[in-house]
Nucleic acid binder design. Sequence first.
DNA 1: TTGTATGCGTTATCAG
DNA 2: CTGATAACGCATACAA
Lengths: 358, 358
Amino acid sequence: MNKSEQLSDQHAGRSPHENVVKAESDGINLRTIAKTVGVHVSTVSRVLRAGPESAQSETAVRVLEVADRLGYRPNRVAAGLRTSSTQSIGVVSPRLHDVMVSILCHSIEATSRYSGYQMLLSTPPDDMGEQFRSVEFLLSHRVDGLILTSLHRDESVFVDRLRELPIPVLAANRHQGDLLPSVICDDREGGRLATEYLINLGHTRIGIIAGSRHASTGFDRLLGYRDALNAAGIEIDEALITHTDFEAEGGVIGAHSLLSLAQPPTAIFAVNDMAAIGVLGAAQQRGLRVPDELSVIGYNDIPVVAHLPIPLTTVHSPLSQMGEHAVIHLLKAIRGERPISEVLPVSLVVRASTAPPK
Amino acid sequence: MNKSEQLSDQHAGRSPHENVVKAESDGINLRTIAKTVGVHVSTVSRVLRAGPESAQSETAVRVLEVADRLGYRPNRVAAGLRTSSTQSIGVVSPRLHDVMVSILCHSIEATSRYSGYQMLLSTPPDDMGEQFRSVEFLLSHRVDGLILTSLHRDESVFVDRLRELPIPVLAANRHQGDLLPSVICDDREGGRLATEYLINLGHTRIGIIAGSRHASTGFDRLLGYRDALNAAGIEIDEALITHTDFEAEGGVIGAHSLLSLAQPPTAIFAVNDMAAIGVLGAAQQRGLRVPDELSVIGYNDIPVVAHLPIPLTTVHSPLSQMGEHAVIHLLKAIRGERPISEVLPVSLVVRASTAPPK
DNA sequence: TTGTATGCGTTATCAG
DNA sequence: CTGATAACGCATACAA
């Protein structure tokens, strides 16, 4: 598809002479080719842009051949200035160190690259002010569209500003009601699934570590938790609901706080896997055997949890699919289509960290 | 430092009128400002480029004020075309889903952004052919420099091509001898430290899961392993050396293969933490208690391993520092300084997964 | 099918 | 200190 990509093989078995050519290749542009072939720049531009398959004329073939030989690499910066399309998308994604986030970004990048787009990634601190600075930064690089993976709830000021931008903006992972088109996983249903499973095992006192208050993911999973308890006719004890961050440390702290209650829970639902790992650690510290004395359930199904000494029961979020779909939707919006939202289905993965209460 | 960043606050409490202005701000460029103020474009360019602190003349102040009011965002694409410097760096980093890699990229991005540079990230499959395609792709976007975090050993063809590029190229994490400047951690010393510690505990049969053969990290850590055994006068049993990938799955497989030996090891050194987690899982499956019946030591000290039910003894690699220094060195090279290499010191972190053999 | 001319937004050079 | 002009590399409307 892209000229320069196809050319890359050319250099594999090159002769000393071609080496010299290559050394000069920094400055190979349309004009160089035009001069070499003896045609006008615009002709070269047209031929190269049409691609090898549609090389009808004699000149076209010569142009392609010379471009190949000189190792021409199109200058997307110049093209971008002219067409005001840089073939790049900006991604604002705090907390890249979180596996869940890095898997998402991995997928976003792979899908973009496959579509001929370059990802410009910014991973600022997780507050909307910093995120908006990243947006401004990416905008100055004239990205064609934006994906934000870490929106905050109730920050309509920033969302309003995002909506005013001259390029399509898409939310992934976390959403903002209907204010921005989004591709997310069905967090509410996932929270319900996890809680319902624990209830079916016989648990009635179920603690939840609900993550950061500003994340729609944790918020929606908590809604699902309430849904399941309500459906089962179990009264909700607000003391069993605790908020922390999404790190293992938060899981440790949250678990200790829950397990120190007068009537401690027999099961804990952590709304992300890292926190669940922290819960496992806290249980160990308190001499509680998992799952016999405490059931633990996580969320997201990051790869490591299947390989823990006690493999974790968790809710599987299709993270790669979420990234892929986010890019697909964004590219459609860039091409002028009306952006649409999507909610991806999740599923429960039962492993060894859950059992009936004793 | 950057104009547009400072301006972002302007819109926080804007009036309806300014809203209208903002809606048109897509097309705000130097010419717009020049026309509004009544000066020439080049004047505007100079003033804006000089910054607010050096606003001497009356005109300069007016220009700045208008730029502010109109919400001017400099077009780095256009500037890049003119100056042939896009204020961006390309990063080729396969395996972004690996926490170790994502922490490194997180740090690279943060340092770049802090320095006014944008990171263009590509995370292709981990083979040099794909990586070189990514390089070509980034080159077409005219990045000012490149960082590669996943070089392969003995692929001098590709390294030669990298050396011929018209921009500075730096290796991070993995190196290629002295062929490319690099910022890495002291993997050989880390491997030695880990092995020496096990030897001092009394272990003599120490298995090693050495990762992929093409990674200098695993290779160097294996060298350190040999160093320590040699120094202790322990003969090296090649049967105790196994190669897998860097995933938990590989650790499981490697551990089972080692523990099935006629004379199984009493300790296993996995050259990365995820593999070590896999070893813990395999031990569990075989009913081996860690650390009493099997000592396990990992590598890198990714955050999760401190919170495992059996906190992992491991070698701490300064990953964030590595990313930071890589960017600093690369930016120096971009400014024309001679690129230098660096080897960062590592340290042993003793936790609960290691003990004397029974 | 090919050539001509123009402009994308910015910066740099030079003259005033 | 400011203004005029050209150029970066490419794409396109238009004319031939």
